[in-house]
Amino acid sequence: MATEKIILAGFGGQGVMSAGQLLTYAGMLENKQVSWLPSYGPEMRGGAANCSVMVSDSPVGSPIITNDATSAIIMNLPSLDKFENDVAKDGILLVNSSLIERKVEREDVTVHYVPANEIANDLGNSRVANMVMLGAFLEATKAVETDSVLEAFKKVYGPRKEHLVPLNKEALERGAAAVRG
């Protein structure tokens, strides 16, 4: 594996920051070199949120992604408008088609459209849409193992949230299935 440079973007509350943290933590559990860099600023509730995650076999140099992302998880339309061109050629775009009606204009990237909110609602909890997207990402990139993400979930959220592991596992699997088609 080379260096995976991943942008996760959406609006505040969609769980892009926590999905990014779980991915980072999972990478660390697999003894990979990782970093997680959030956007921070005077954002309003429901405003834009994004983070950059590095997962690599070699030490992470700059934690910043500048138009060289290997993949992007895009949860809403403003994020697609903002980050579509930050993915490198032959990169992977995962687009939440539940909330984004337009198609990706570029033809030099691989695009997976995932109806994340519909799948999450189907599972009975709209809040796992981020995990559906993360599952799709893992299927498309094999950046880390699904089990590592679930292990990270247990470590980050502790025993009180452990009952949510099966739901999150299913969300990851349904996202993966959406990519497999």
């Binding site: 980072t24 990782v34 970093s35 997680w36 860099l37 992470v60 910043i64």
Partner: peptide
Amino acid sequence: DGMIGQMMEP
């Protein structure tokens, strides 16, 4: 700087 303060690393 803010990057050191805000980012996460092992």
